[in-house]
Amino acid sequence: MADQGDVKAEVPQVSLKVVNADGAEMYFKIKRGTQLKKLMDAYCKKQGISRQSVRFLFDGSPIDENKTPDDIGMEDDDVIDAMVEQTGGLL
């Protein structure tokens, strides 16, 4: 088993926090060059929810799943909001 510290030095990662509407947090480490789609899919699988029922927002903007943390300038400990669907007819 190789030393993990070496690997970390080679692969720049960013650790992100996904917060849902109830305030529950889930931490992710993701390579800076990996598409955020992977994070979203992993989050949905862990939560047991379907992808189309969650909206991922970063800094007020919906996240393009093909973008990477580098593309949208994410830093360590940045927060991604996982919002639930809104629906409305009348009170």
Binding site: S15, G23, M26, K29, I30, L39, A42
Partner: peptide
């Protein structure tokens, strides 16, 4: 508290 998971994602 709220199930804190750390995942390493590699491409």
């Amino acid at each position: 508290a709220g199930a804190e998971v750390i995942v390493v994602l590699s491409s």
